[in-house]
Design a protein around this nucleic acid. Structure first.
Lengths: 148, 148
DNA sequence: CAATATTCCCACCAACTTACTAGGTTTAGA
DNA sequence: TCTAAACCTAGTAAGTTGGTGGGAATATTG
């Protein structure tokens, strides 16, 4: 039931991007090194993030990636969904929504899947990339804040 | 991110077992038919449930499976864990517990995984098989209650 | 213009997992 | 002894995971 490396690497990389972007694009190379991830694998991860509209790419020398929106407007749920596909546990429940299936009438577990999905969605859609970074800074281990 | 069929079939089957057991063992055949699952596949599911100590098997004619404990003492989390393995999203968080990894200091996502895991665990460990059946009965679609 | 640093794109791969099916053995009740 | 059940093991086709590698396009700098 592990989230795949795509989701885990991707989320860490997005947080890294928030932390180290100084209004300049951040090259994958730097992220890959800091996070200990293969650069060419990260490429594939960022291709998905770009297609989902979460980052913009700047090509060529001194290029890299930047967030498409401010960090406090990108939720962890969006990032994971872009990388993992729908965050659906069973076919009858997605986020807070009910999905009909042919056994809706007699299914004993539907309401459970819905409840669990809704609880997860609460966290996924209320936590933003900014939150991740803020929490980390609160522990006092990060590099200098941007506005130094 | 779907829970696998093992987990979904297994949970449905356990609820089915609660609903249809009349102090007699329930054969897989019956569960398989009611739930529309292949019997031989269910065998493998129940092998796991038995090894986890959640059901007891009674062999031979008129045999079948019975819950090892009362339905209100078996949580959905136990069932899913028996079938899916550890319900861990990332290597740094399991239920409410923190797991150390070599990047604990700098990991930007650890606290998020912990929060999400903890929220999921709340639901998983507080919902019992009895709850599933009670909810279903509340909708008035189930067969006669046991104590009729 | 040339060198360089980067994204971008695609093909490939080995290992593993999933969702089964099939065939047989053992056990116990009628 | 017949039969219905659990039990066990092996196989398998398709898909997923977690990558690697090669090269093309693009932008910056000297």
């Amino acid at each position: 039931m592990l989230i795949s490396t795509k989701g885990r690497y991707g989320l860490r990389s997005m947080a890294d991007l928030v932390l180290y972007a100084q209004n300049k694009p951040v090259p994958l190379r730097a992220i890959a090194e800091r996070q200990g991830i293969s650069e060419s694998y990260l490429e594939q991860v960022f291709a998905l993030l770009r297609k989902a509209g979460l980052v913009n790419a700047i090509r060529g020398s001194y290029g890299g990636y930047i967030l498409a929106r401010p960090a406090h407007q990108i939720t962890v749920g969006e990032v994971l969904q872009a990388l993992e596909g729908p965050l659906t546990l069973a076919n009858c429940a997605h986020g807070g929504t009910t999905i009909e299936c042919d056994k809706t009438d007699t299914c004993l577990t539907m309401s459970f899947w819905q409840e669990l999905s809704a609880k997860m969605d609460e966290v996924l859609s209320s936590t933003t990339l900014q939150d991740l970074v803020d929490r980390e800074r609160a522990t006092g281990k990060s590099p200098e804040p941007k506005d130094k």
